[in-house]
Design a binder for these strands. Structure first.
Length: 114
DNA sequence: TTAGTGACTGCAT
DNA sequence: CATGCAGCCACTA
């Protein structure tokens, strides 16, 4: 595992920790801020893994580009994520999507990579 | 080193 | 709108 790769995951976890309560970010957003605009899928993998390793990361605040919760088979986990978000004031419509225009996290700081 | 995987995404249908 | 699908890429075995 190269240094560059581990830096990516570290950035991802750090960024997710920056998302304040009540706001959400998409996998694509995190990937972009972490330096790899097209690694949204990889971000999803990291979020899934953050559950296994005991790391204090607000993984529930990361959703897909449609404003919906992504899951593959793990219904319980998806429901938990939805409850956590609703507890933070985020509501979902009938199709299970929230309003990204309203709740999307906009980082004020500037991130850079080398 | 290589091949397989998936909590993604945007565009086509 | 909802589905399907190819492209993408960090991570793993």
């Amino acid at each position: 595992m190269s240094r560059r790769l581990s830096e990516f995951s570290d950035r991802v976890y750090w960024l997710v920790c920056q998302i304040p309560t009540g706001l959400v970010a998409t996998y694509g957003q995190i990937a972009t801020y972490a330096g790899s605009p097209r690694a949204a899928r990889a971000v999803g993998n990291l979020m899934k893994r953050s559950l296994e390793i005991d790391r204090e990361v607000p993984w529930h605040r990361v959703i897909n580009a449609k404003g919906a919760i992504s899951f593959k088979g793990d219904t319980a986990r998806a429901e938990l994520q939805r409850r956590l978000l609703e507890a933070e004031g985020i509501s979902f419509d009938d199709s299970g999507r929230c309003d990204l225009e309203t709740h999307r996290w906009q980082p004020r700081e500037v991130f850079w990579y080398d």
